[in-house]
Design a protein around this nucleic acid. Structure first.
Lengths: 96, 96
DNA sequence: CTAATATATGAATAAGAATGCATAAAAGGC
DNA sequence: GCCTTTTATGCATTCTTATTCATATATTAG
């Protein structure tokens, strides 16, 4: 990497944000719907979504007073596949 | 992802650890050599290397009193390529 | 225009993790 | 066996970041 963008990984480095990413793998969701699934404060979800959006991991579409977020699958899908592969092969904790 | 392994990203989420990864992209290095390149305490590098090794991002080989670390390219190479692609396309900060 | 719903923003706190120092352990040279 | 080199470990401190609360903004309904 030319660009020392550890920010890429920082942005994904919490359970909440990965929970959000996983929720969005199924399809676009509003902030409210996401909040219901991940079980934390709405404002917390907002903060997380904004940081994910800043790095273009998710994208927001206005829909009336709702904001519907969807995953940047172009980037995320292949990376998540790779991660899963690695975890399956190497991670002692995770493969339980 | 079935496995909620945000630990995957946590482990890569600091400048130091990414500096180490980048140094190792060229080829295996001892702790000392790595330390020279990244410009922090040796023990700090040790700590970072251990956490990288725990997640199998790097691997250590004993060589006398040295420990030579090398990158798990199988996992890291494709992921780093993807990250670079994403950054080039989306990251405003990073593409300067 | 007022009330209600949906989301974002800012500031304070709390939590967690990185870093560095001091020390230990392991290996090799003399 | 002792000293030197290399790396690791444990603990204390310092940073950083996530989270929450309180508040603001925006949109729609009535």
């Amino acid at each position: 990497m030319k660009c020392k963008c550890h920010a890429f990984f920082e942005t994904l480095a919490t359970k909440l944000k990965m929970d959000i990413v996983e929720a969005l793998e199924e399809g676009p969701l509003s902030v409210n719907e996401i909040t219901k699934r991940v079980g934390v404060e709405r404002s917390t979800v907002s903060h997380a979504l904004l940081s994910l959006a800043e790095c273009s991991f998710v994208e927001a579409k206005e829909n009336g007073r709702q904001r519907v977020y969807s995953l940047n699958k172009e980037t995320m899908a292949p990376i998540l596949r790779r991660v899963e592969k690695h975890v399956k092969k190497y991670c002692r904790r995770c493969k339980k």
